[in-house]
Design a protein around this nucleic acid. Sequence first.
DNA 1: ATAATGTCAAGAGCAGTGCTCCCGTCTGTT
DNA 2: AACAGACGGGAGCACTGCTCTTGACATTAT
Lengths: 265, 265
Amino acid sequence: MATGTARERVRAEITREITDVATVHLGRDGAAGLSLRAVARDLGMASSAVYRYFPSRDDLLTALIVEAYGSLGQAAEDAESQVARTDLLGRWLSVCHAVRGWAREHPHEYALLYGSPVPGYAAPQDTIGPATRVAAVLTGLLADGQGQLEVPTFGVPLTEAAVRSLAPVRTGLGGDAVQAELLFAGLTTWVALFGAVSFELFGHLVGVVDDVDAWFDATMTRLGGLVGLVGLVGSVGSAAAAEPVGTGAGTPSSSPNATASAPAG
Amino acid sequence: MATGTARERVRAEITREITDVATVHLGRDGAAGLSLRAVARDLGMASSAVYRYFPSRDDLLTALIVEAYGSLGQAAEDAESQVARTDLLGRWLSVCHAVRGWAREHPHEYALLYGSPVPGYAAPQDTIGPATRVAAVLTGLLADGQGQLEVPTFGVPLTEAAVRSLAPVRTGLGGDAVQAELLFAGLTTWVALFGAVSFELFGHLVGVVDDVDAWFDATMTRLGGLVGLVGLVGSVGSAAAAEPVGTGAGTPSSSPNATASAPAG
DNA sequence: ATAATGTCAAGAGCAGTGCTCCCGTCTGTT
DNA sequence: AACAGACGGGAGCACTGCTCTTGACATTAT
C-alpha cells in the first residue's frame, strides 16, 4: 500500500504524526498560538527535526488548512447526501447546518479557513482545490434545480457587467451548467451563509440575536428564497407545510440536519 | 480643554503617539506582526515604558480596534449622509460601497475587526459600543422605510422562534421602531454585506468572480430586494434616476454602481 | 523652600518563539 | 562494502511579550 521504500513510509508516518499533534494544538490554542517547538516537544523530538518535514511554520499551517477544508467539505457532502435529491430546500438547509455545525465544533479551524489570512497574505495555491468542495456541493444543488427554480429578480434583472463577472466560476463549472441568474443568486446565498457563520463565531451577533439556532435556520430558509428554493410550491410546498420550516431544524446544537432529512421521509 | 494637570496632558499626548505609530504598523504589517517593541523603537523609548500606557499588547490592539470601528463608522455615516434621505436604495448602496471601500483601503484594520478574533477569544466590552455605528446607520435606514418597504417572504412567514430571537437588537433599538419582518431581513442583508466584503478581502472570490466591482454592486442591489428596497418603484425610481446611487459616495476604484442606476432610468 | 509622594523611563533579565547551521548517525543504493 | 543522502539533535541568532528593579523627575503638601 504505502509507497515502496521504508524510508518514505516512516517519513509519511511522522509527517502524519506532526500534523495530528499540530491539529490538536490548533484546536486548543488557535492558529496564533500554534508553536512548532511545542509540537516538537509533544512528539519528543528536537524542534529542528520538524523542519525536515515542514520547511516553515506557515507550511505546517497550510497543511492544516488543507486538512480542515477536507473535513468541512466532507461534513457538507455527508449532510447533503442524507437528504432526498428531489428535496432541494432540504439539501440547501442541510448543507447550511452542516457548515455551521462543523464551524461550531472546530472554531479555530474555521477561523483559520474563513478568518483573517494568517500567512503572508495570499492563500497558497494548494488550498484552492480543497476549498471548493462545499461550493461544489452547492453548485451541484443549483444544477439539479436548473429549470425548476425561479429566481426572484425584484424587477431588476442583472446588468451585463454582473453576468460577465461570473466568468471564472462559470468556466470552473465547465460551460453553462447553471444559468446566470441562478448562479448569481447562488453566489449571494453562499456568501451570506459564511457571513452568518462567521458573524456568529466571531461574536458579532452578541447583543443582536438571542436564539442563534432559530435565527440561523430562518435566515437560511429566507435566503433559499433568493435562489427560488422557497418560492416553488411543487416539491417544497408539501414538505415544508407538513413541517414548518426549521421548527426543530437547528435548534438544539445537536442533530442539525435531522429535520432537514425528515421531509424526505 | 485638555484636563487640568500637565501630567495628564502629556500622558494623553504620548498615548496618542503610541496608538498613531501602532496604527501605521498595523496597516503595514497586520495585527499578527504588531510588535510593542517595534512601536517603542519608532518612538525612541524603551519597550518597558510603553507598558505604562498599555498594560499589555492586547490592550493596545483593543485601542486600535476601537479606533478602527470609529473610522469605519464615520465612513459609513459620511457616505450615507450624502444621499437624499428619500432615496432609500441609494442610501443602502452608499453604505455598502463605503464599507467595502474602507475595507479595501484598510485591509488589516478590517481583518482586525471582522476577521478571526486575535485576543483571548472574546471581544472586550469596550469594543461593542463603537462596533454598532454602521449597524445603527442601517437600522436608521430601515426605520425611515418602515411602512413603505414591503419585505418578500416567499410565502413562508417567519417562525415565532425567529421573531423572538430578535429580542436583543429590538431592545437595543428601543421598542418597535422596526417591524419584525423588516428587521429580520435587514439583519440578513447586514450579514451578507460583511460576508461579501470579507470574502473579497480574504481571497475567497479568487477564481470565482472576475469583476468584483460589478459583482458587489449587483449583489448589494439584489440584497436590497430582500428588504423591499428594490421592489418599490415609487420613491426609488425617480430619486435613483435623478442622482445615480452613491456616485461620489464611496466608489473610488471604478464607479461600480453606475450600473445600479442604469436599470432605473 | 523644603520634604514627601507618586509618576515615569530605562535597563537587565526571563521564558518563549521561528529559523539556521553544523555534526554525528543511520539508511538505502550502487 | 562503500558512498551519498536523509535524518535527528544541539547550539545559537534575532526576535517577541512581559516583569522587576533602579534612578530621575515632577507634583504636591508642609
